[in-house]
Amino acid sequence: MAVTPWQLGNIFGPRVAIQVKGDAAGRMIKAAKHPLLISGGNALKEMVGDKPYIEFIVELLKARSMPFIATGATYKDFVDRGLNPIKIMNAVEVVDRLRDSEWSIDGKDPHDLVVFAGLSYQYLSQLLSCIKHFATHLKTICLDRYYHPNADLSFPNLTEEQWIENLKLLLDNVKSR
């Protein structure tokens, strides 16, 4: 059965995201050569069980070192948790530069994968649309609870329990040798 986007009217196509589970998402992040993580303001509001989503993102970043940007004015929240985002930028400003196939946030090799977590649904949907059309050199994956058709890879719409389970699987796979 086809997966509907979380926002019911937000139908995209013909190219839509492949649904993944946590294990595949974890393997993908682990295998990426130079991934970039973009975390948004909802990382503080969304709860994963009894913890804010940002705690999971921090754990992921500790398990898989990669440059990351804290958008939505969440920079301090990462610093408080012992991590330093590489830059303070608005998500639109980052995606603008991601259209350039040679660009990377740290000036090293170009990114091959962009991991999104904690941006509001509609905001991210539009940013993913830009990457889908104009940054075809990139793969995108979204770790939020809801299906994002404009990504390359996305979780389907999940219950909170399913989401927790998939995030755990993701972490297990990132951490595995």
């Binding site: 948004g40 303001g41 958008t71 608005n90 639109v92 400003e93």
Partner: peptide, 11 residues
């Protein structure tokens, strides 16, 4: 430019 939330807007 569109920003993500009020805090970003203020800056």
């Amino acid at each position: 430019i569109s920003v993500e939330n009020r805090k970003e807007a203020m800056v």
